[in-house]
Amino acid sequence: MFKKLILACLLAMTVSAVIPTCSFAAFSNSISLSEQGTSSDIIYIKRPESHQASTSDRTYTISAVGSQGTVIKIYKYNPADDMCHIIKAGTSIGASGLYSVVVDLTDNSNTFMVTAENSQGSQAVRIDINKIKQSTIDRLRNVTVTIRNLW
């Protein structure tokens, strides 16, 4: 009985020691879309602020701020295998704390994962960029709203 208790304690200690170590491990070249990391305040995405945007352009610039030494990687979601694959290798944030990256918008619906890692932990942020046709934007620009008298 006593042996079992000691074993259980040892197991619990091992698990509690291993879990954080595993969490801090670098993101691999392919990650799941549900990946979140261990923290939510490693980086702050400045653009797109709401983590989603629409544009008619063929590229989009994602910007972020974080502390010096944080390593950022960019992944793109591939619906065929339901995984995100790395498209921009790890870049370390410098003394300015500023980071930006230009991504190509090859599809109408583009999902990216921005991962950040430093000694404090790791974070993964999903970003969705929809590509819309220029003609749609032009149509929207010309829309005029007429308030009708409903009575």
Partner: peptide, 30 residues
């Protein structure tokens, strides 16, 4: 290369522990 103005990337607005802010019209080249 792709050119962004600092204001587009919101680098002209401070946030949290962000030490550096850029003039909104600085051009950032990819």
């Amino acid at each position: 290369s792709v050119i962004n103005y600092s204001f587009e990337l919101k680098f002209d607005q401070p946030f949290g522990t962000q030490k550096t802010t850029l003039n909104p019209l600085i051009r950032i080249y990819s």
